[in-house]
Protein backbone atom coordinates (compact mmCIF):
# COMPACT_ATOMS: atom_id res chain seq x y z
CA UNK A 1 0.00 0.00 0.00
CA UNK A 2 2.57 2.54 1.08
CA UNK A 3 4.83 1.30 -1.66
CA UNK A 4 2.07 1.98 -4.18
CA UNK A 5 1.78 5.56 -2.99
CA UNK A 6 5.51 6.01 -3.40
CA UNK A 7 5.36 4.54 -6.87
CA UNK A 8 2.55 6.84 -7.94
CA UNK A 9 4.38 9.89 -6.69
CA UNK A 10 7.63 8.81 -8.23
CA UNK A 11 5.88 8.52 -11.57
CA UNK A 12 4.33 11.95 -11.10
CA UNK A 13 7.75 13.35 -10.29
CA UNK A 14 9.24 11.90 -13.44
CA UNK A 15 6.35 13.32 -15.46
CA UNK A 16 6.79 16.76 -13.91
CA UNK A 17 10.49 16.74 -14.72
CA UNK A 18 9.74 15.69 -18.28
CA UNK A 19 7.11 18.42 -18.64
CA UNK A 20 9.63 21.05 -17.62
CA UNK A 21 12.35 19.73 -19.88
CA UNK A 22 9.78 19.27 -22.62
CA UNK A 23 8.75 22.90 -22.48
CA UNK A 24 12.38 23.93 -22.89
CA UNK A 25 12.58 21.69 -25.91
CA UNK A 26 9.31 23.07 -27.30
CA UNK A 27 10.59 26.61 -26.96
CA UNK A 28 13.74 25.78 -28.84
CA UNK A 29 11.90 23.91 -31.56
CA UNK A 30 9.41 26.73 -32.10
CA UNK A 31 12.09 29.41 -32.21
CA UNK A 32 14.32 27.44 -34.56
CA UNK A 33 11.45 26.39 -36.80
CA UNK A 34 10.27 29.94 -37.34
CA UNK A 35 13.58 31.73 -37.02
CA UNK A 36 15.80 29.64 -39.25
CA UNK A 37 13.90 30.22 -42.55
CA UNK A 38 13.98 33.95 -41.88
CA UNK A 39 17.70 33.97 -41.15
CA UNK A 40 20.09 35.23 -43.75
CA UNK A 41 23.50 36.79 -43.95
CA UNK A 42 21.82 40.14 -44.52
CA UNK A 43 20.10 39.89 -41.14
CA UNK A 44 23.44 39.91 -39.40
CA UNK A 45 25.32 42.39 -41.56
CA UNK A 46 22.87 45.04 -42.76
CA UNK A 47 20.99 47.81 -41.09
CA UNK A 48 17.34 48.36 -42.02
CA UNK A 49 17.03 49.86 -45.51
CA UNK A 50 14.23 52.04 -46.82
CA UNK A 51 10.87 50.35 -46.50
CA UNK A 52 12.26 47.79 -44.07
CA UNK A 53 9.17 47.93 -41.95
CA UNK A 54 6.90 47.15 -44.85
CA UNK A 55 8.92 44.09 -45.70
CA UNK A 56 11.66 45.46 -47.95
CA UNK A 57 15.34 44.71 -47.60
CA UNK A 58 17.64 45.28 -44.71
CA UNK A 59 18.86 43.50 -41.62
CA UNK A 60 19.16 43.67 -37.86
CA UNK A 61 22.69 44.98 -37.54
CA UNK A 62 21.38 48.11 -35.82
CA UNK A 63 19.83 46.00 -33.04
CA UNK A 64 22.75 43.61 -32.76
CA UNK A 65 25.29 46.40 -32.57
CA UNK A 66 23.10 48.40 -30.21
CA UNK A 67 22.71 45.41 -27.87
CA UNK A 68 26.45 44.71 -27.93
CA UNK A 69 27.39 48.32 -27.17
CA UNK A 70 24.78 48.54 -24.48
CA UNK A 71 25.90 45.35 -22.82
CA UNK A 72 29.59 46.26 -22.95
CA UNK A 73 28.89 49.66 -21.43
CA UNK A 74 26.56 48.31 -18.77
CA UNK A 75 28.98 45.55 -17.81
CA UNK A 76 31.88 47.97 -17.40
CA UNK A 77 29.76 50.33 -15.33
CA UNK A 78 28.32 47.44 -13.34
CA UNK A 79 31.78 46.04 -12.60
CA UNK A 80 33.02 49.48 -11.57
CA UNK A 81 30.36 49.47 -8.86
CA UNK A 82 30.24 45.83 -7.90
CA UNK A 83 33.92 44.88 -7.64
CA UNK A 84 34.68 47.53 -5.00
CA UNK A 85 31.57 46.47 -3.08
CA UNK A 86 32.52 42.80 -3.16
CA UNK A 87 36.10 43.59 -2.19
CA UNK A 88 34.97 45.85 0.61
CA UNK A 89 32.64 43.38 2.24
CA UNK A 90 35.05 40.48 1.85
CA UNK A 91 38.46 42.03 2.51
CA UNK A 92 37.82 44.99 4.76
CA UNK A 93 34.95 43.78 6.86
CA UNK A 94 35.39 41.02 9.41
CA UNK A 95 34.11 37.55 8.56
CA UNK A 96 30.89 37.83 10.51
CA UNK A 97 29.81 41.36 9.84
CA UNK A 98 26.24 42.53 10.09
CA UNK A 99 26.99 45.29 7.61
CA UNK A 100 28.22 42.77 5.05
CA UNK A 101 25.13 40.63 5.61
CA UNK A 102 22.86 43.63 5.12
CA UNK A 103 24.69 44.49 1.90
CA UNK A 104 24.17 40.93 0.69
CA UNK A 105 20.52 41.05 1.65
CA UNK A 106 20.04 44.31 -0.19
CA UNK A 107 21.74 42.89 -3.29
CA UNK A 108 19.35 39.94 -3.08
CA UNK A 109 16.39 42.27 -2.87
CA UNK A 110 17.62 44.47 -5.70
CA UNK A 111 18.02 41.30 -7.75
CA UNK A 112 14.29 40.70 -7.29
CA UNK A 113 13.21 44.19 -8.38
CA UNK A 114 11.72 43.84 -11.86
CA UNK A 115 13.46 45.46 -14.79
CA UNK A 116 10.44 47.60 -15.60
CA UNK A 117 10.93 49.37 -12.27
CA UNK A 118 14.59 49.99 -13.07
CA UNK A 119 13.48 51.30 -16.44
CA UNK A 120 10.92 53.62 -14.92
CA UNK A 121 13.40 54.82 -12.32
CA UNK A 122 16.09 55.46 -14.92
CA UNK A 123 13.55 57.36 -16.94
CA UNK A 124 12.78 59.69 -14.03
CA UNK A 125 16.53 60.23 -13.65
CA UNK A 126 16.71 61.08 -17.34
CA UNK A 127 13.98 63.66 -17.00
CA UNK A 128 15.69 65.06 -13.92
CA UNK A 129 19.04 65.44 -15.69
CA UNK A 130 17.51 66.45 -19.01
CA UNK A 131 18.83 63.35 -20.78
CA UNK A 132 17.16 62.09 -23.96
CA UNK A 133 16.69 58.44 -24.80
CA UNK A 134 20.22 57.38 -25.61
CA UNK A 135 22.76 54.63 -25.39
CA UNK A 136 24.07 56.21 -22.20
CA UNK A 137 20.65 56.20 -20.55
CA UNK A 138 20.17 52.58 -21.57
CA UNK A 139 23.58 51.70 -20.17
CA UNK A 140 22.71 53.31 -16.85
CA UNK A 141 19.38 51.51 -16.61
CA UNK A 142 20.87 48.13 -17.51
CA UNK A 143 23.86 48.56 -15.19
CA UNK A 144 21.45 49.15 -12.30
CA UNK A 145 19.76 45.92 -13.30
CA UNK A 146 22.91 43.79 -13.42
CA UNK A 147 24.88 45.25 -10.51
CA UNK A 148 23.06 43.12 -7.92
CA UNK A 149 23.68 40.01 -10.02
CA UNK A 150 27.36 40.85 -10.28
CA UNK A 151 27.64 41.57 -6.56
CA UNK A 152 25.91 38.40 -5.50
CA UNK A 153 27.64 35.99 -7.82
CA UNK A 154 31.10 37.40 -7.19
CA UNK A 155 30.46 37.51 -3.47
CA UNK A 156 29.56 33.81 -3.42
CA UNK A 157 33.02 33.06 -4.74
CA UNK A 158 34.89 35.68 -2.75
CA UNK A 159 33.47 34.29 0.47
CA UNK A 160 35.22 31.02 -0.23
CA UNK A 161 38.66 32.59 -0.33
CA UNK A 162 40.32 31.17 2.76
CA UNK A 163 40.96 33.58 5.57
CA UNK A 164 44.47 32.15 5.92
CA UNK A 165 45.35 33.58 2.55
CA UNK A 166 44.44 37.07 3.68
CA UNK A 167 46.16 36.60 7.01
CA UNK A 168 49.30 35.33 5.34
CA UNK A 169 49.48 38.36 3.09
CA UNK A 170 48.71 40.74 5.96
CA UNK A 171 51.39 39.21 8.13
CA UNK A 172 53.91 39.87 5.38
CA UNK A 173 53.18 43.54 5.92
CA UNK A 174 50.81 44.08 3.03
CA UNK A 175 48.04 46.61 3.45
CA UNK A 176 44.53 45.43 2.76
CA UNK A 177 44.61 47.38 -0.48
CA UNK A 178 47.49 45.22 -1.61
CA UNK A 179 45.65 42.04 -0.75
CA UNK A 180 42.89 42.98 -3.15
CA UNK A 181 45.00 41.89 -6.07
CA UNK A 182 45.59 38.49 -4.48
CA UNK A 183 41.91 38.02 -3.76
CA UNK A 184 40.80 39.17 -7.20
CA UNK A 185 43.23 36.79 -8.81
CA UNK A 186 41.85 33.96 -6.69
CA UNK A 187 38.28 34.64 -7.74
CA UNK A 188 38.93 35.52 -11.38
CA UNK A 189 37.03 32.52 -12.81
CA UNK A 190 34.15 33.57 -10.54
CA UNK A 191 34.28 37.07 -11.95
CA UNK A 192 34.13 35.63 -15.44
CA UNK A 193 31.08 33.55 -14.56
CA UNK A 194 29.41 36.56 -12.98
CA UNK A 195 30.07 38.68 -16.05
CA UNK A 196 28.68 36.02 -18.38
CA UNK A 197 25.57 35.61 -16.26
CA UNK A 198 24.91 39.33 -16.15
CA UNK A 199 25.54 39.74 -19.88
CA UNK A 200 22.95 37.04 -20.46
CA UNK A 201 20.47 38.93 -18.36
CA UNK A 202 21.37 42.33 -19.81
CA UNK A 203 21.21 41.39 -23.45
CA UNK A 204 17.80 39.78 -23.14
CA UNK A 205 16.07 42.42 -21.11
CA UNK A 206 13.54 44.59 -22.88
CA UNK A 207 11.64 46.38 -20.14
CA UNK A 208 14.60 48.36 -18.83
CA UNK A 209 15.67 49.69 -22.23
CA UNK A 210 12.15 50.29 -23.50
CA UNK A 211 12.07 53.95 -22.59
CA UNK A 212 15.73 54.59 -21.89
CA UNK A 213 17.73 53.46 -24.92
CA UNK A 214 15.12 54.28 -27.50
CA UNK A 215 15.21 52.75 -30.95
CA UNK A 216 16.97 53.65 -34.18
CA UNK A 217 17.64 52.18 -37.57
CA UNK A 218 21.31 53.09 -37.58
CA UNK A 219 24.26 51.83 -35.61
CA UNK A 220 24.91 54.30 -32.78
CA UNK A 221 28.22 56.12 -33.00
CA UNK A 222 28.18 57.96 -29.70
CA UNK A 223 26.79 57.56 -26.21
CA UNK A 224 24.26 60.31 -26.72
CA UNK A 225 22.55 58.65 -29.68
CA UNK A 226 19.63 56.33 -29.21
CA UNK A 227 20.35 52.64 -29.73
CA UNK A 228 18.22 49.77 -30.98
CA UNK A 229 18.35 46.51 -29.05
CA UNK A 230 17.55 42.94 -29.99
CA UNK A 231 14.70 42.40 -27.52
CA UNK A 232 12.98 45.57 -28.69
CA UNK A 233 13.59 44.66 -32.33
CA UNK A 234 11.69 41.44 -31.63
CA UNK A 235 8.99 43.20 -29.67
CA UNK A 236 8.31 45.94 -32.20
CA UNK A 237 8.52 43.86 -35.34
CA UNK A 238 6.32 41.13 -33.97
CA UNK A 239 3.50 43.60 -33.58
CA UNK A 240 3.66 44.43 -37.29
CA UNK A 241 0.84 42.99 -39.40
CA UNK A 242 3.25 42.29 -42.28
CA UNK A 243 4.45 38.70 -42.44
CA UNK A 244 8.00 39.52 -43.64
CA UNK A 245 8.51 41.88 -40.74
CA UNK A 246 7.21 39.33 -38.28
CA UNK A 247 9.61 36.77 -39.70
CA UNK A 248 12.47 39.10 -38.90
CA UNK A 249 11.32 39.12 -35.32
CA UNK A 250 11.65 35.36 -35.31
CA UNK A 251 15.12 35.65 -36.82
CA UNK A 252 16.03 38.14 -34.10
CA UNK A 253 14.62 35.80 -31.47
CA UNK A 254 16.80 33.03 -32.85
CA UNK A 255 19.89 35.25 -32.74
CA UNK A 256 19.13 36.32 -29.18
CA UNK A 257 18.45 32.77 -28.02
CA UNK A 258 21.68 31.56 -29.60
CA UNK A 259 23.68 34.32 -27.87
CA UNK A 260 22.09 33.58 -24.51
CA UNK A 261 22.66 29.86 -24.92
CA UNK A 262 26.34 30.32 -25.69
CA UNK A 263 26.72 32.65 -22.71
CA UNK A 264 25.07 30.20 -20.36
CA UNK A 265 27.23 27.31 -21.58
CA UNK A 266 30.37 29.44 -21.18
CA UNK A 267 29.28 30.44 -17.67
CA UNK A 268 28.82 26.78 -16.80
CA UNK A 269 32.25 25.96 -18.21
CA UNK A 270 33.92 28.63 -16.12
CA UNK A 271 32.08 27.82 -12.93
CA UNK A 272 33.07 24.19 -13.34
CA UNK A 273 36.66 25.28 -13.77
CA UNK A 274 36.28 27.22 -10.56
CA UNK A 275 35.00 24.28 -8.60
CA UNK A 276 37.90 22.22 -9.90
CA UNK A 277 40.37 24.83 -8.68
CA UNK A 278 38.75 24.71 -5.30
CA UNK A 279 39.19 20.98 -4.77
Amino acid sequence: MRKLEEKIFKTLMRIATLVILGSLLLIFIAIIKRGLPAMSWDMLTKIPGGGFYIGKEGGLLNAIAGSVFLVIGATILGLAISIPVVVYINVYLPRKSLFADITRLSADILFGIPSIVYGAFAFTLMIYFGLKTSLLAGIIAVSLLITPILIRSMDEVARLVPKDLKDAALSLGATRYEIIKVVLKQISPGITTAILLSIGRAIGDAASVLFTAGYTDSVPTSLSQPAATLPLAIFFQLSSPIQEVQDRAYAAALILTAIVLVLSLLARYYSRKLSKNKV
Binding site: R201, G204, D205, A206, Y250, A253
Partner: peptide
Protein backbone atom coordinates in the same frame (compact mmCIF):
# COMPACT_ATOMS: atom_id res chain seq x y z
CA UNK B 1 18.58 32.25 -19.06
CA UNK B 2 16.08 32.52 -21.90
CA UNK B 3 15.13 36.19 -22.29
CA UNK B 4 11.54 37.21 -21.47
CA UNK B 5 10.97 38.47 -24.97
CA UNK B 6 11.76 35.02 -26.38
CA UNK B 7 9.23 33.51 -23.99
CA UNK B 8 6.79 36.06 -25.37
CA UNK B 9 7.54 35.03 -28.94
Amino acid sequence: GIPPVVYGV
